[in-house]
């Protein structure tokens, strides 16, 4: 697999004048492979939002390097290219929509890139259809629900035709319905359009849907593996201020009682199957 984003021994600290620098990342290394769906988990303040901002040169590492498709984010000449290739979606849907009409907002990115008007039109319509918001193209953003706004924000990113999307807690402010819609959209973009997805979240059930889960703690990678491998480490996760899905937690309890249930179940369905199998 090809590396798409590489963090090479990155050290990063926020510097506030008159105060000691607050270290966030220490000698942090991580590779994101082209086409994968990776979830980054961690409690608030573990440095995961900083990882997002380093991905497209919004922040630059004090030590080490961040490479996007081989391009160094510290190279100012390459910044527009990098930002076109790595799109970003943030937590608060209200604070990333620029225009007063949905379709104009989706056009914002391509317009900044100087794309030809007829091509922008095509991309905007296409992006809105992909996130299932085409019928809302003439709406004003403030009349949409949180989940709908977030899908407009995603459309705005895919209209720039990125190779990778980084989403920083995109569902934290949404209701269950909105969360589900956004997750479905993200998975569809990854599976059907081959877009690399970096999903920063603290919802375990969302991380369980990824190909790979990276757990961060104190600015370092604590665990890195498939969701099954990671969630089987319940104790380690708890120490990092995280949880395991309830199905996984129950499987661990039943296993301790001598029941023949695998410890790496992720969903309720798997657990029900496993318990039924153990009964026989």
């Amino acid at each position: 697999m090809n590396d798409y984003i590489q963090f090479q021994n990155v050290t990063f600290a926020y510097e506030i004048e008159g105060e000691a620098p607050k270290p966030v990342l220490k000698d942090f290394s991580l590779n994101v492979y082209a086409g994968e769906f990776v979830a980054v988990l961690g409690h608030n303040g573990c440095g995961k939002s900083t990882v997002a901002k380093l991905c497209n040169g919004i922040e630059l590492p004090q030590k080490g390097k961040v490479l996007v498709d081989g391009l160094d984010t510290a190279d100012e000449e390459k910044l527009l290219t990098i930002r076109q290739r790595v799109g970003m979606v943030f937590q608060n849907p209200d604070n990333q929509i620029v225009a007063t009409i949905v379709e104009d907002d989706v056009a914002f990115g391509p317009e900044n890139l100087g794309v030809d008007p007829s091509e922008i039109r095509r991309r905007v319509d296409d992006a809105l259809k992909r996130v299932d918001m085409y019928d809302f193209r003439r709406f004003e953003p403030h009349n949409l629900s949180g989940g709908q706004k977030q899908r407009v924000a995603i459309a705005g990113v895919i209209a720039m035709q990125p190779a990778c999307i980084v989403l920083d807690e995109p569902t934290a402010m949404l209701d269950p319905r909105g969360r589900k819609d956004v997750m479905e959209t993200v998975k569809m973009l990854n599976r059907e359009h081959g877009i690399t997805v970096v999903l920063i979240t603290h919802y375990m059930d969302e991380a369980a849907q990824a190909d790979r889960v990276v757990v961060m703690d104190h600015g370092k990678v604590l665990l890195d593996g498939t969701p099954r491998q990671v969630f089987a480490r319940g104790e380690t996760l708890k120490q990092a201020g995280l949880d395991v899905p309830q199905a996984t937690a129950l499987a661990a309890l039943l296993q301790r009682d001598g029941l023949d249930v695998p410890a790496d179940v992720l969903t309720v369905d798997e657990l029900a199957d496993a318990i039924a199998a153990a009964k026989r």
Binding site: H43, M173, L242
Partner: peptide
Amino acid sequence: CAGLDPKG
């Protein structure tokens, strides 16, 4: 609890 991490 809206928007808080599991520990929060």
